[in-house]
Design a binder for these strands. Structure first.
Lengths: 152, 152
DNA sequence: TATTGTTATACTCTATAACTATA
DNA sequence: TATAGTTATAGAGTATAACAATA
């Protein structure tokens, strides 16, 4: 019998620990900065994230969105309502279950995401002045892992 | 005259863009999860981060802490006051400038950070089940870059 | 009975503006 | 005058608890 899964990465345990430390600290600080560097001043980070999820998945129920964004259902109710009021998402009845709803993005949201991407490039450019190519390479390699981590 | 610094990483522009996309999304989601996976239920993420900074730097003024944490001075005033009330930091008069104060961590804070590290390892272990060694390697490589990014 | 989503309410964290004390 | 820190106040975002409708 193996305890391997309870003692992973023995060869890099301390380094992983240091990485998680750095990660947590960086995530919090970056999060605060991202809050201020908002693409659309009227959209919160979570609202943006929901739009991104819908762009990837096409559509989802409020409950699914709450689970994906790691937010409680009442919070997602509010977020979806705000997005709908802004004309960025559409709500339709669920075909199989009358309790649920189906949320999908509007054409307006797609246009906004495109504009968002353009503005992000500006931020990226200003950041690029402080990172060398090697650092960018490490960031590119880790990006998918971070996404996986966020979903785990 | 060169526009190079306004058009960095031409060879990886799109990939950098995708990385920033993934990064932003992951940072927000991880941030929310970290909020819940708090080591000490009574300490906010920023409070923990301040203790971490003090552990690294030894001591700092409230203004320095506010800049490091990317928080406004009044917010740091509140955070430091809460930490002091919990016996985790000590405030002393600044030797050269009577307007400033010097914040340093107490022995109690050191013990708490040790306990914190222990609990983080539990979280790390559970995460490790979902990441392979190659993914961890990428994360370790990117961790210092993320820290740099957060400070830039 | 269990589940999906909503309403009502309160809390946590942070910001801005105005103020005090010192440089 | 400028700077470090504080006080007072407001706002954004989220959570919990209680509820309605449907499965």
């Amino acid at each position: 019998m193996s305890y391997a899964k309870y003692m992973p990465d023995l060869s890099h345990g301390d380094e992983n620990d240091a990485a998680v430390n750095a990660l947590r600290s960086a995530v919090m600080r970056l999060g605060r900065r991202l809050k201020h560097q908002r693409v659309d001043e009227s959209l919160s980070p979570t609202e943006m994230s929901v739009l991104g999820t819908l762009a990837r998945c096409g559509h989802a129920t409020p409950g699914e969105l709450a689970r994906k964004e790691h937010v409680q259902p009442p919070s997602m109710t509010r977020i979806v309502a705000l997005l709908e009021a802004k004309g960025l998402v559409r709500l339709e009845p669920h075909p199989d279950d009358r309790r649920q709803k189906v949320v999908s993005q509007t054409e307006q949201a797609e246009a906004m995401l495109e504009e968002s991407r353009r503005k992000r490039n500006v931020w990226l450019t200003s950041l690029a002045e402080g990172l060398d190519e090697d650092e960018w390479a490490k960031l590119r390699a880790a990006a998918p892992v971070l996404e996986k981590l966020a979903h785990l």
